[in-house]
Structure formats: structure tokens, C-alpha cells
């Protein structure tokens, strides 16, 4: 819990809300409320794109949002059809205003999400939609970079390349200060990042 407190404290100045939720039902309700309250940036229709991941599937969002007529895409990639699926996935990602992902770790010291690419872990879902929602479990919060690098090297199933071909650290929403040093959120990546922490 100390790490969670540290995370919340570090996230505040980054414009990164960290929302602890008890159990999947509460998390589903919170995410669903967010999807309903926010407005799309590029069009009028709402759709959501999400990773196929146990933490997210547990929220049962497609059912949760069906009554509000908001589709939830959960694209799947297989070795044989990677390219064509990727084309369809691309459309879904571009059209969705919210992207929901899990993460491998979260560093409390700097409020940094660590996300590796994978068969069902599309990189674009945490990047292209206007709002990124990340869902992590409490025990995924670790202290800092030192701990992360040590863990990456010790993971049993990671093979020689424990990073995969793309590992991204995300610290807060996209931002820029290129015009007269004025801080503006939403330069190219998500304008908002919401981090839900599942408390068992």
C-alpha cells in the first residue's frame, strides 16, 4: 500500500489520475462511467478498443457497454493472419476514442507504466485513441527503474530477449511545451491517461 500511496502522490503533478478500485465489478463500473462521460475527439460515434488480457476481460466491458450501444473491440492477432488482422485492428484503433490496456509493471517512484508488445498487446491501443485507460493489479506496482531492470532480467519465461521488440515506458498523458514553454496536454499521443488499480 505504501507503493500505491507513492504512486498517487507522484502521479498528481503529471495530470495522471490514479484510481484504486476494489474488485472487478467496481472497476467495470468506473471504466464504464468514464467511457460514457467522455466525448470523442474526432467524430460523433463512440467506440472503445481494448487488449485481450485477463485483467480487462474480467471487467466484461462489451456487456457493460452494450446497453449504451458503445462497441468494445478486442482485436486478436494470430501468427498466420497477423497482417490482415492488423489492417482491421488499425481501423478499430483509429476509430476508437478510448484505448484500454493492462501493463507489465508500474513504477511508483515516477508514476511510469511499463508495457511490452505482444501477440494481443497492440502498441497502438495505448497511443492512437484520445484517451488511454490502463488497468493494473496492485501487485504490479514496483518501486523504480532499478527494480524493473532487475526483474526483467530474472523473469523465468522471458528467454534471451526479455524485452520483446518494443517496450514502452509511459509517464502521464502526451504533452508539449514547444510554444513559448506553455504546457499543453495531448500533443500527439493520448490527451488523458487514467490508471485504475485493482485492489484485491
Amino acid at each position: 500500500m505504501l507503493l500505491l500511496e507513492k504512486l498517487i502522490q507522484q502521479a498528481a503533478p503529471l495530470n495522471l489520475p490514479v484510481i484504486p478500485v476494489s474488485g472487478a465489478a467496481a472497476a467495470a463500473a468506473a471504466v464504464s462511467r468514464l467511457v460514457r462521460e467522455k466525448n470523442p475527439e474526432w467524430g460523433d460515434t463512440k467506440s472503445v478498443v481494448a487488449w485481450q488480457h485477463p485483467l480487462i476481460e474480467e471487467l466484461n466491458l462489451p456487456d457493460e457497454l452494450a446497453e449504451h450501444h458503445i462497441p468494445v473491440h478486442m482485436p486478436e492477432a494470430t501468427p498466420q493472419t497477423a497482417v490482415s488482422i492488423s489492417g482491421q485492428m488499425r481501423t478499430q484503433v483509429v476509430e476508437s476514442f478510448i484505448g484500454i490496456t493492462a501493463a507489465d509493471y508500474c513504477l511508483a517512484e515516477t508514476a511510469t507504466l511499463v508495457i511490452r508488445s505482444g501477440p494481443d498487446q497492440a502498441r497502438a491501443i495505448s497511443l492512437v485513441p484520445s484517451i488511454h485507460v490502463a488497468v493494473i493489479a496492485l501487485d504490479q506496482i514496483i518501486a523504480d527503474l532499478t527494480e524493473l531492470y532487475a526483474l526483467l532480467k530474472q523473469e523465468p519465461n522471458s528467454g534471451p530477449n526479455h524485452l520483446t521488440n518494443c517496450m514502452t515506458f509511459i509517464t502521464g498523458p502526451s504533452k508539449t511545451a514547444d510554444i513559448e514553454l506553455n504546457m499543453v496536454h495531448g500533443a500527439h499521443g493520448p490527451r488523458e491517461l487514467h490508471l485504475f488499480v485493482l485492489i484485491p
Partner: peptide, 23 residues
């Protein structure tokens, strides 16, 4: 930028791996 951590840091090792979703 007097930050504690940059907004995005990506480790990129190669193209999209076989079976991976995108890249």
C-alpha cells in the same frame, strides 16, 4: 526538461515480431 521521467521512452529492438499485434 527538469522532469523526473520523460513522458515516453520506447525500447525498440527490431520490426514487429511474428504474431505480434502491430509495429
Amino acid at each position: 526538461a527538469a522532469q523526473h521521467m520523460a513522458g515516453y521512452i520506447s525500447y525498440i529492438g527490431g520490426p514487429r515480431q511474428p504474431g505480434h499485434a502491430d509495429g
